[in-house]
C-alpha cells in the first residue's frame, strides 16, 4: 500500500470524541504527512454539559459545539465534515441508508485507514450505532479496496472480552496537542480537564488519556 496516498478518516458521532479518543493518534498521522478528515455524525446538540459555569442552552448548544469542533480541528490540523444527523438518534436511522451514506464518503476520500468506535463497546448508543454502520459500509466495498478499520473500545469490560488491543500508542509526544484539542471543547471539557488537573498524574484516568488503543476489525472475506 506504500504507493498509495494514505488518508485517515475518523468517524465518530460527537464533537469531542475525536479529541478524547484519538487526537494523539491523529497527531501521529499528521506528523507523518497523512491527511486526516473527521466525519462527525452529529453536533452533540443533546449533550448534558452546558459549560461550567453554564453558558449554553439546549437551543444554542449545537452552535457552540460546532465552533468548538472547528477550533479543535485547527489545533489538530485536520478537516471536518458534518454528517448532519441528530444527537442520540443514530441507532434509529435506517441502517442501510446510514451505511450507504458512509460508504460514499469513505470512497470519496479514498480512505486507507478508518478510526471509529467498537460496536457494542462504545458505551454511548450513538458510538455503537455509527461503529456498526462503518462496518456495514466497508463491507459494501469490494475486498482489496477496503480501508483498514481501527476500533476504539470504551466500555469497562472491553479488554476482558476483546483481549489486548492490536495497536497501543503512547501518545505522550503529542500530549500538548491532545490537551489543546480537548480544551477547545469548552462547553464539554471543563469538568473533565479540572478533574485531570486535580488528579495525581499517575492516576488511571490520566494514564488512559495518554494511551490510545485500537482493535483492527477483521472482515470475514479479507
Amino acid at each position: 500500500m506504500n504507493h498509495k496516498q494514505k488518508h485517515l478518516l475518523v468517524i465518530f458521532p460527537h464533537p469531542d470524541d475525536e479529541s478524547f479518543g484519538a487526537s494523539g493518534t491523529i497527531s501521529k498521522f499528521r506528523d507523518e504527512g497523512v491527511p486526516v478528515t473527521y466525519l462527525c455524525g452529529t453536533l452533540g446538540e443533546m449533550g448534558r454539559n452546558m459549560g461550567s459555569p453554564v453558558f449554553a442552552n439546549r437551543e444554542t448548544l449545537y452552535n457552540f459545539r460546532k465552533k468548538e469542533l472547528n477550533q479543535a480541528a485547527r489545533n489538530l490540523d485536520i478537516n471536518v465534515e458534518l454528517l448532519g444527523y441528530r444527537d442520540k438518534t443514530l441507532e434509529f436511522e435506517p441502517s442501510e441508508e446510514l451505511a450507504k451514506h458512509l460508504k460514499d464518503r469513505i470512497e470519496l476520500h479514498k480512505a486507507t485507514t478508518i478510526i471509529t468506535h467498537y460496536p457494542g463497546y462504545g458505551v454511548h448508543p450513538d458510538h455503537d450505532a455509527l461503529g456498526r454502520a462503518v462496518v456495514k459500509a466497508v463491507e459494501m466495498i469490494e475486498p482489496g479496496f477496503r480501508p483498514e478499520v481501527w476500533m476504539h473500545a470504551i466500555s469497562n469490560d472491553s479488554e476482558k472480552d476483546l483481549g489486548e488491543p492490536d495497536f497501543i500508542f503512547d501518545i505522550t509526544p503529542y500530549w500538548e496537542r491532545k490537551e489543546a484539542a480537548i480544551r477547545a471543547h469548552l462547553s464539554q471539557a471543563d469538568g473533565m480537564m479540572n478533574l485531570i488537573e486535580e488528579q495525581d498524574q499517575a492516576s488511571e484516568h490520566y494514564q488512559r488519556l495518554k494511551t490510545e488503543q485500537f482493535y483492527r476489525w477483521i472482515f470475514p472475506t479479507d
Binding site: R48, M50, G51, P53
Partner: peptide, 26 residues
C-alpha cells in the same frame, strides 16, 4: 426555554415552548 441543571451545570430537564418548530440547526 426552561431547564433544570445539577450542581455541575449539567442539564437534567428541559421544557421549551415555541410558535415555530424547533430546528435542527438554526
Amino acid at each position: 426555554l426552561m431547564a433544570g441543571h445539577d450542581r455541575e451545570g449539567r442539564l437534567m430537564v428541559a421544557l421549551e415552548i415555541s410558535e415555530k418548530p424547533f430546528t435542527h440547526e438554526a
